[in-house]
Nucleic acid binder design. Sequence first.
DNA 1: CCGGTCGCATGACCGCGGTCATACCGCCCA
DNA 2: TGGGCGGTATGACCGCGGTCATGCGACCGG
Lengths: 228, 228
Amino acid sequence: MSPDSETLLRSCALFSRLTAEDRRKVTEISVERRYGKGDQVFAEGDPSDLIFTITSGRIKVVKAIAGGKELILEILGPGDPLGAIAAYESRPYPASAIALEEAICIASKRAPFMALLETCPSLVRGMLGGFSLRVIELGKRLAEITGSRVEARFAQIFLKLADRLGQPRASSIFVPLVLSRQDLADLAGTTMETSIRIMSRWGKEGVVSTESDGFVISSRDDLEALSR
Amino acid sequence: MSPDSETLLRSCALFSRLTAEDRRKVTEISVERRYGKGDQVFAEGDPSDLIFTITSGRIKVVKAIAGGKELILEILGPGDPLGAIAAYESRPYPASAIALEEAICIASKRAPFMALLETCPSLVRGMLGGFSLRVIELGKRLAEITGSRVEARFAQIFLKLADRLGQPRASSIFVPLVLSRQDLADLAGTTMETSIRIMSRWGKEGVVSTESDGFVISSRDDLEALSR
DNA sequence: CCGGTCGCATGACCGCGGTCATACCGCCCA
DNA sequence: TGGGCGGTATGACCGCGGTCATGCGACCGG
C-alpha cells in the first residue's frame, strides 16, 4: 500500500476505532487499488478472496436480472465496505461492483482478514453494524419497489441521494454524482425509456434537473409529495 | 424458561456451538414465548428490546407497503434468529413478525445479549453468518421481483420452499406449510386476485396443488421452466 | 468534413396485471 | 336453519409502463 495508507484507513468508519497496532495489521494484508470510471472491481460469481474498503469515489453494486438487464443494489462511497458479505462465508460474490467515477479501494486478503476479526472486537462490531444496516436498507428497497409506481420510486431515489450526499444551495440541493439515465433505470428497476421520460418531464417541470456533474433538486417537498 | 430450555437452545444453529456455560448465560437472560397462528411477535416500528430465536413453528416477517398492502420479506423457521438486525443498532424493528402456525420462541433481552456477544466469539460468527446470508437472500429477492413476471416469481417461491422444507413423495414433493392465497401474493409482491388465478390454473394443470396441510409440487422441472 | 458511436428524447402500440364487482363454498354461531 | 364470515374463484375493464422504432445532438477518430 501507499505510504499514506494509515491515513486512508483512519478515514473509514469501519477502521477508525481500531488501535494503531491493529490498523498496521490491516495494512499488512492489504493493497491499494485504483479504478477508472466504468472499471469493474469484481464480477458476480467470482470467488471472493478479497474484501474491499472504499477510500474515495463511488461504486455501484449491480446484479444481473432476467433479460440481460441489471439492477443496482446500492451505491457505496468512501468508508463503506465492499464484498464483505460474500467473503464472510467464502461464497462467490453475489453481485458485481463497478466504479461510477475514479475510485480507490483498500483490498484485503480474505483469510487473514477473517483471522484479524477473531482478535478485534471493534472491527466485528463495525461489520455487524454495517450488515444490519444493509439488511434494513434492502428490506426497504424491496418494499418500495413492490409497493410504489415508477415515478414514486424515482422520487425516493433522489430523496435518498439528497440525504446521503446533497449539498444545500440557494433554495435547492445539489447532488454531486453523475448517473446516466440507464443507471437511474437500473436503480428503480425500470427501463431506460421510462427513466428518460420521467427525467425529461421533471426537467421541464423544474423538479430535478440534470447537470454535467450531478443533479439539482429544486424542491425537496415536491419530491416528498411525489414519493407516495 | 421451561426446564428443557437447554435442549431447545442446543437445537438452534446459532447456539449449538456454544459451551454449556454460555448456553446457561443465554438461558438466564431469556424467556420462552408461545404464539398461536396469526399472533404477532412484534410490530414494525416497535422498540427492539428483545431478540428472538425460533425453536418451533414458522414465522413470517412482513413489511407494510403503500396502499395498506404488505410484503413478506422472509419466512423463518426453527433455529432462525428473529429481530436481531434491528436490535443490533437499537433501532425500531423494520418489519413485523407474525406466526404462520403454532410457534415457540426464545426471547432474549437486548442489552445482556449484546454483552454476551462481546465475550462469545462463536455467537458472533453465527450472527455474522446469518446476517450475510440474509443480505445475499434479500439481494436475490430484489433481483427476482424486478426482473421476472408474476408467474415466474411464483415458480421461484415454490422452488425455494421445495428446497427448504420439501418432503419427497412418490414422484412429487410435499411442502408442509400452510399459506393462504394472500400470503402467496404478499410473498410475490402482487395482489390476491392474481395469486388466486395462478394457483387455480396451476391446480388444474397439475403443477402445484393445494391441500389442507400444505402444497404438493408434482414436477420440480415444470417449475424450473416456469421460473424464467 | 464525415461516418460512427453514445447518450438522450419522443411517439405509437399493446399486454401484463392491478382494480372492481360478483359469486360460491365451508364453517361457526346464534 | 339461517345468516354472517373468511377464503377462494372468475369475469370485465383499463391504465401503467414495457417494447419497438425513429430521430437528434454531442463528441471523437480518421
